[in-house]
């Protein structure tokens, strides 16, 4: 099938626009399909910077790239003008380590994470490994971008690293992919009772938590013009009574804008006393944001300590 000359030219320019170009659904911050998200995760672990093209925003590119590459699916990765492959192939190349050479980046030696396993957890894991594992099938621990952990039994890939397990004498290994490994360093695995029976309980000290910010610290940050997103989670009625200068009402539209921002953006949330904003902050942590602050005491503390002209209510 021939491609319209104009579209062919446009895609050619996109492919040549940068050394590494990923045609995907959505963008790097917010991938809109699982396959695109997987490739972004792999590239993010190796490259600080690369170009993405959102095919959902341009239907003619979405159709055109399939013809251009003789490849029927998206995502598609181009490196220095050469088609490399789709999701399966990138995963395979990542597993074998071949991707480092393709991208021309140094292979980073992944440090083996230290994991503490309680005695009951070790017993349960040994049992699971014996029951479901087998030649080439071993225990894997995946820690995703939101620091949610997941245990599974899967084939070992060359890129996997073994965890250093402490706390229990063990007959099994826990494998981690190179992206999960640094996120898993220092975690503990225990068992806990749930309404559905026993389950593994993972405590991860690396998981980002909501941090505290006093109104004095907030004032200093604002005075220094530090780049932050200051979000007011109260109602418009409360805002009419008193507001912190520079704070933006967190409505649906604003929430959607924030969700599209880089995950290391500093978010500072406040409400009346700090309760509602803490809950909202937890939600941004769950979305993968790593720098989320809750203003202790809310605008009430602001009125008392910083700006007596801001009415209390």
């Amino acid at each position: 099938m021939a491609l319209e000359e104009a579209v062919h030219q446009e895609i050619k320019e996109l492919v040549g626009a940068s050394d590494v170009v990923l045609f995907m659904k959505g963008n790097r911050q917010a991938p809109q399909c699982g396959f695109s998200a997987t490739v972004v995760g792999i590239l993010d672990s190796m490259l600080p910077d690369y170009q993405t093209v959102d095919v959902l925003a341009a239907p003619h590119i979405r159709d055109g790239i399939k013809v251009f590459s003789s490849w029927p699916t998206v995502p598609q990765l181009y490196v220095r003008g050469e088609f490399v492959g789709g999701c399966d192939i990138i995963q395979e190349m990542f597993g074998s380590g071949e991707i480092y050479e393709t991208l021309g980046v140094e292979k980073v030696e992944v440090v083996q994470p230290k994991i503490e396993v309680s005695a009951p957890a070790a017993e349960a894991l040994t049992l699971a490994a014996e029951e479901h594992g087998g030649p080439g099938r071993e225990l894997h621990l995946v820690v995703d971008a939101s620091f949610q952990s997941n245990l599974s039994i899967a084939p070992r890939t060359p890129a996997d690293v073994e965890a250093i397990i402490s706390g229990a004498s063990t007959e099994f290994v826990i494998l981690l992919d190179p992206i999960s490994a640094p996120r898993a360093d220092g975690i503990t695995i225990d068992v806990a009772d749930t309404p559905n029976g026993q389950a593994f309980k993972v405590d991860n000290p690396n998981a980002p938590k909501v941090q505290k910010m006093s109104v004095k610290e907030l004032k200093a940050v604002l005075d220094a013009n530090e780049p932050i997103e200051l979000l007011d989670v109260r109602t418009p009625e409360e805002r009419a009574i008193a507001a912190i200068p520079g704070a933006v009402l967190l409505n649906e539209e604003e929430a959607a804008r924030i969700e599209g921002l880089p995950r290391e953006t500093k978010l500072v949330l406040h409400c009346h006393h700090g309760g509602r904003s803490h809950q909202a902050a937890e939600q941004f942590i769950a979305l993968g944001f790593s720098q989320v602050f809750n203003v202790i005491g809310g605008i009430d503390a602001w009125s008392q300590e910083i700006d007596p002209d801001a009415p209390r209510y």
Partner: peptide, 24 residues
Amino acid sequence: VKQQQRVYGAIADLMAGPSPPVHA
């Protein structure tokens, strides 16, 4: 990749358009 591109290229017409006969 190059091997598969030969085949995908040959059947591109059957996979193109809004509701192609070959979905995947």
